[in-house]
């Protein structure tokens, strides 16, 4: 089912004065088709066929700060979805909701529904360990553990007991490093500290580390912001390859990057999900004024 929405969030009405004409009307399907449940004021198709993760009416608070406001979004299988938006708009926050990394932040509350393959991940009975195995995360700054390259990759399989013996573990490490496109560069120095690698290598090591526990979804929070263009290109290439096996949600500040790697793009603004759609459509024909401003660089 594909639905298009056009309701407006009250917050947006108050916080940013906008005219009716700011919202290009989509007359294709009437809002009755939505069913009883009202889904937030996002422009574009939040739903996809065959979603891996579905988020509905997600709100996040840091203490009193309302950081994510009523966001609904689907993440499809084997797609790369890019999340863009001005700094502080809640991209990282939203991303961290998807594998409950927000649990580690004191005073952070999440409400709404987020499902991974029909399972509510905020169900109090749910165990975060398997969840995080299924939904891995790569961070903005490469954060290899202060251990050897081998140990970095082996860490996940070790704690989860995924490898029965040393040969298995070696195999997992090698496969993961190969998939992360790092094997050729490090195969001769697996016992050297991971912190001794270059920034781009470190980031790919972190990706290898994430792949080693074979997740279904990989969340990437500005994975290339600390890298130079060449390293960035390598990581982007890698993302493209990984798409075959994994679902990837990537936060980025680089519009070019979003355009290069993603199939769909979601634009966040002050905690709201303003618009979501096919990447080509977002970048060539944004429907919301805010998106357009942002994309054309008219927005700070």
């Amino acid at each position: 089912m594909i639905a298009v929405f056009e309701t407006r969030s009250p917050i947006m009405d108050n916080s940013i004065a906008m005219n009716e004409s700011d919202f290009p009307r989509n007359t294709g399907i009437s809002s009755d088709a939505l069913g009883e449940r009202k889904i937030s004021g996002t422009v574009g198709e939040i739903q996809v066929q065959d979603p891996r993760m579905t988020c509905r009416n997600v709100d996040v608070f840091y203490g009193n700060k309302h950081a994510i406001i009523d966001v609904s979004l689907d993440i499809g299988k084997n797609e790369v979805i890019a999340m863009i938006g001005p700094s502080g708009c809640g991209k990282s926050t939203f991303l961290r909701c998807l594998n409950r990394m927000n649990d580690t932040i004191e005073g952070c509350r999440v409400s709404g529904q987020i499902q991974l393959e029909d399972q509510d991940i905020y169900d109090p009975r749910l165990d975060v360990v398997p969840l995080r195995v299924q939904v891995g995360m790569v961070f903005q700054k490469p954060n290899p553990f202060p251990k050897s390259i081998y140990e970095n990759v082996a860490y996940g399989p070790r704690i989860h007991g995924l490898a029965g013996n040393k040969t298995d573990l070696d195999e997992i490490v090698e496969t993961s490093l190969r998939k992360a496109g790092l094997w050729e560069e490090v195969k001769d120095r697996l016992d050297q500290p991971g912190t001794g690698l270059s920034g781009g290598q470190q980031q790919r090591l972190c990706i290898a580390r994430t792949i080693a526990v074979s997740p279904e979804v990989i969340l990437m929070d500005e994975p290339c912001s600390a890298l130079d263009p060449i390293a960035t290109a390598k990581v982007e290439e890698l993302i493209d390859e990984l798409r075959e096996h994994y679902t990837i949600a990537i936060v980025t500040h680089s519009m070019q990057q979003a355009a290069r790697v993603s199939q769909r793009t979601a634009y966040f603004h002050l905690g709201n999900l303003v618009e979501v759609g096919e990447t080509t459509q977002i970048f060539t024909n944004p429907r919301h004024r805010l998106t357009e401003d942002y994309i054309t660089g008219r927005f700070g």
Binding site: N99, T104, M137, V138, F139, F145, Y155, I159, H160, T210
Partner: peptide, 18 residues
């Protein structure tokens, strides 16, 4: 020890004590 170390570990599904 930077928080990013902890994040990296938690994101792999490690428990606190691990």
């Amino acid at each position: 020890v930077p928080q990013s170390m902890r994040d990296g570990s938690y994101a792999l599904g490690a428990t606190k004590s691990e």
